[in-house]
Amino acid sequence: MPTITFAQSSGATTEITVAEGTSLMRAAVTNSVDGIVGECGGQGMCATCHVYVRPEFTDQLPELSDDEDEMLDCTTAERTDSSRLGCQIKMSPALMNIVVDVPADQV
């Protein structure tokens, strides 16, 4: 099963193993990962599950939709080239050991 590593700005990391198809946001919220809020319940409406995906995994990510692109413009922490919304990333074999950095602020 795929494993997600959430790296906090403090340096602490949390490793979570989830079923394929689970979104990164859901994995974080159901496992109490600090710094991922998911206030809208995964509807891509609130931009509070912002993560920075480590560059070695960006090629395997699902394509950025127009909606996600627009929502990423309003994240609390600065948007970078590696910014994504956790609710839009569903775990797949291609993302088997993905590592993401959690921004310092979401709200």
Binding site: R26, T30, N31, V33
Partner: peptide, 15 residues
């Protein structure tokens, strides 16, 4: 996805 999304994780209340 088969289960409801919790408002907070399981150790939120205790922690």
């Amino acid at each position: 996805e088969g289960t409801a999304l919790p408002l907070r994780g399981p150790d939120f209340f205790e922690s």
